[in-house]
């Protein structure tokens, strides 16, 4: 579904991504682990096509099409979705409007049903993200992605700033977006996903199939996400660099 080849990118002339290679097939959920500042968020932003990031080398192919130079909205309409870590406040645009924009139709019943499930009914007529708590902002991101129904969904630190109750709601919504709730086997699913996390807590609610350690703008190790986390908890991220097994 998504193929990234030798991708390098910079922001304001400063290199951030360095020759990233990653393939995500239909039905696969990948977790990207790494310390703060390693470039995980940048990778998501580059996949989404944010213009302040400049692709200096490599290609991004989605559903067989080269989207390296596509605009953000072209990628969104092609089936890529993104849940932001810190979504911006958009004054004058309500949560309800955002749901309608995402789903492409005005369906009062559907909007209300989604909002009820995510406990966001009181937020529907408020400006999106205006005065939202951490949990509300994350749930609002899930609400929009559920309405958007992307084939490939990216989640940037979905557990950050979220308490345990909210994490269960967010995790439940992610599982629904990624079709892992009903279809536990990779081959049965039509969706794919990439989850950025540095704590790994969210993986207790969404089962990822593959894990990658991301450091200094590159993928430095691949493996089972749970094993990778166990290793990180024990020895820290620097051990991944020293170990270097994956690179051999």
């Amino acid at each position: 579904m998504l193929e990234i080849k030798n991708l390098s990118a910079s922001i304001a002339g400063k290199p951030i991504l360095d020759k990233v290679n990653l393939t995500i097939n239909k039905g696969e959920i990948h977790a990207l682990l790494g310390p703060n500042g390693s470039g995980k968020t940048t990778l998501l932003m580059v996949i989404m096509g944010m213009p302040r990031y400049e692709v200096t080398a490599g290609t991004i192919t989605f559903q067989g099409k080269d989207i390296t130079n596509a605009t953000i909205d072209e990628r969104a309409r092609a089936g890529i979705g993104l849940a932001f870590q810190r979504p911006p406040v958009v004054r004058g645009v309500t949560t309800r409007q955002m749901v309608e924009i995402c789903s492409g139709v005005k369906d009062e019943g559907k909007t209300m049903a989604l909002a009820e499930r995510l406990n966001l009914v009181p937020m529907l007529d408020r400006d999106i993200n205006q005065g939202f708590s951490g949990g509300e902002a994350k749930r609002a991101e899930m609400l929009q992605l559920l309405a958007q129904n992307p084939d490939f969904a990216m989640f940037d630190e979905p557990e950050s700033g979220v308490d345990l109750d909210n994490m269960a709601i967010v995790g439940g919504a992610m599982a629904e977006i990624l079709e892992t709730k009903e279809m536990r086997r990779t081959g049965d699913r039509n969706k794919a996903g990439l989850i950025v996390t540095h704590t790994g807590h969210i993986l207790e609610f969404v089962n990822a199939d593959f894990g990658h350690i991301f450091m200094h703008g590159s993928i430095v190790c691949n493996g089972n996400p749970r094993d990778l986390f166990a290793e990180i908890r024990e020895n820290g991220y620097e051990e991944c660099v020293r170990c270097n097994k994956c690179q051999q």
Partner: peptide, 20 residues
């Protein structure tokens, strides 16, 4: 850009924000 990630073109996003 946030509105574009939800599928609106740049012009549509700017118009929606201005209207808001």
């Amino acid at each position: 850009e946030y509105l574009q990630t939800r599928g609106l073109t740049k012009d549509e996003a700017m118009s929606t924000i201005t209207r808001g």
